[in-house]
Simulated assay, not measured.
Amino acid sequence: MIIIIFFIAHWYLSLFTQTFFLHRYAAHQMFTMNKHWEKVFYVLTAIFQGSSYLSPRGYGIMHRLHHAYADTENDPHSPKYSENMFDMMWKTKTIYCDILHDRIKLDPKFIKNVPDWPLMDKLADRWFIRIAWGVLYTLFYIQFANAWWMFLLLPIHFLMGPIHGAIINWFAHKFGYVNFKVNDTAKNLLPLDFLMMGESYHNNHHKFGGRANFGIKWFELDLTYPIILLFNALGIIKMKKNNDLNYM
């Protein structure tokens, strides 16, 4: 039971930092926060993603490229130009690393206002830090796992961030339903998104790229959105006035 709780906690904490901080804040600037809170969420991302840490700057820029060039040859991760999900993940990794290490020239519009903390990125991205996280996960399993099959979950811990991205960038461009006609293959993967905290409403998001609530229909519950509203009420973030909070 301890292992299952640990796995679920890691899944949702890692996913929350990715959808809230990397996706909705770093890439889309759906709300603002001051530099203090920006650094707090930077640190939380490093802790919750652990061995699979994704730089908010690198992710934000790459995701902007995805929206600008969705399902074209310039898309960092399109199933249309990959043989399988693992091929797409490898291409995504290559482009992400090129962005992170400034190996490609980018239009300034893709970089504008993206959060940037070079010291944290440099520290969290080091291989010995990633390996150390992996060792901690493994030691936890050795201590508490009471069945051999539980160790099969360890690779998911190691690659949690990229796995979350692959679920949406592969499956949500192949399977699901659409609410809106868009210029790409984005679909809503799950009618009730208990698994991806709103991320699987991909068709909705591609239609309304700046909207903080990814759910549109009455049954499309975006689990991240109530947290955003809470943070806004507490003054941790500030919703932008042009973000239509009441659109249904």
Rank of each mutant, 00 (worst) to 15 (best):
Q29W: 15
Q29T: 07
M30L: 10
M30G: 07
M30P: 09
F31T: 10
F31N: 08
F31L: 11
T32R: 15
T32G: 10
M33E: 07
M33K: 14
N34C: 10
K35H: 13
K35A: 12
K35Q: 13
H36L: 15
H36T: 15
W37E: 10
W37H: 12
W37K: 07
E38Q: 15
E38P: 08
K39M: 14
K39P: 04
K39F: 14
K39W: 13
V40F: 00
V40C: 05
V40A: 01
F41M: 03
F41E: 04
F41C: 03
Y42K: 06
Y42F: 13
Y42L: 03
V43L: 13
V43P: 12
T45P: 04
T45V: 06
T45A: 13
T45I: 05
T45W: 08
A46W: 10
I47W: 02
I47P: 07
F48L: 00
F48H: 03
G50Y: 01
S51V: 09
S51D: 02
S52P: 00
S52V: 03
S52L: 04
L54S: 11
L54Q: 12
L54R: 02
L54D: 06
S55G: 05
S55V: 12
S55P: 09
P56K: 05
P56N: 05
R57Q: 02
R57H: 09
R57K: 14
G58W: 10
G58S: 07
G58M: 08
G58C: 00
Y59C: 02
G60Q: 06
G60H: 09
G60D: 07
G60K: 05
I61S: 09
I61V: 15
M62C: 09
M62Y: 01
H63D: 01
H63C: 02
R64L: 04
R64N: 00
L65S: 08
L65Q: 12
L65E: 06
H66Y: 13
H67G: 03
A68Q: 14
A68S: 14
A68P: 04
Y69Q: 03
Y69E: 05
